[in-house]
Design a protein around this nucleic acid. Structure first.
Lengths: 143, 143
DNA sequence: ATCTACTTGCAAACCATTTGCATTTATGAT
DNA sequence: ATCATAAATGCAAATGGTTTGCAAGTAGAT
């Protein structure tokens, strides 16, 4: 629980840095992200939250969090939008198109070099701030 | 117009290969894709189509086309889904988050090698069939 | 030419997400 | 600590892209 307190303070700082007020709901949402090391959506969060009656609040939080950089959006080709904490531990995903299983992978150096090359070669873009990179296939079990 | 006839036959073959019937609307849709070398959505297609009264038909076509591999989905983080012809000329996009301008880039060899490495390193995935890779930033004009 | 399965039109439903407005709450200044 | 103010929440309704059920039309195989 000492750890939990530290975490809570981290989240408070995160919110403050983002210019957002620190509310119980928001701290809970961040805790849910921190507990579940995978992309999650508004529904999932709403189902885990206690003391909240309106899913719109979740949507508003997610939107604010993305805007100020706390979260990053993950395009999984599902019907709803998924997010993850945009931590330092930058990674991407392989998604099983049959069962939805997700595996992470991490190729920071390659991707970093790749982005530099793209920017160097581009006419109109010298400023790339985000990227999506997700792989889709069938996992060992489904194959 | 000779060229156009050739193209139409290409499309007919494409549909046949996909197990889909060749209808005027479908040929028109494919022609629209062929004329517009950029990711487009259902609305755009519907607005260009003549002799059609129901957007649901467009959605159904897009869905069939994607399923049989004629189209590929492009995740542009817009509110609607975009598609492109999945031609041999495999490429990706840089999207301006301010004005929506799109630039293509093509790094087949790097990406090919990259995917091989990922598959080699992965525990659960030996079969990657698709991938999304889009970059987001601000273009020279908006910057 | 006919038969059958696939396609389309029409209308309605669906579902994730957004929005307006009144109320409550967090935070910085007093 | 209290207060004032801007921001966050709850509630309800709207939005908008996409999907679906059903009846009628049409392409393609025989």
């Amino acid at each position: 629980m000492v750890k939990k307190e530290i975490e809570k303070n981290d989240f408070k700082n995160l919110l403050k840095k983002g210019g957002l007020k620190s509310t119980p709901i928001r701290l809970n949402i961040l805790e849910i992200f921190s507990k579940n090391n995978k992309p999650i959506n508004a529904d999932f969060i709403f189902s885990k939250l206690k003391g909240i009656t309106d899913e719109a609040t979740v949507y508003r939080s997610l939107s604010s969090f993305e805007k100020c950089g706390i979260l990053k959006r993950i395009d999984l080709r599902m019907s709803s939008i998924y997010f993850e904490l945009s931590d330092i531990n930058h990674h991407h995903h392989i998604v099983c198109t049959k069962c939805g299983e997700i595996e992470d992978f991490k190729e920071s150096e390659i991707i970093e070099r790749f982005l530099l090359k793209i920017v160097k070669d581009s006419r109109n873009f010298k400023n790339i701030t985000e990227h999506s990179l997700e792989l889709f296939g069938t996992c060992r079990v489904c194959n």
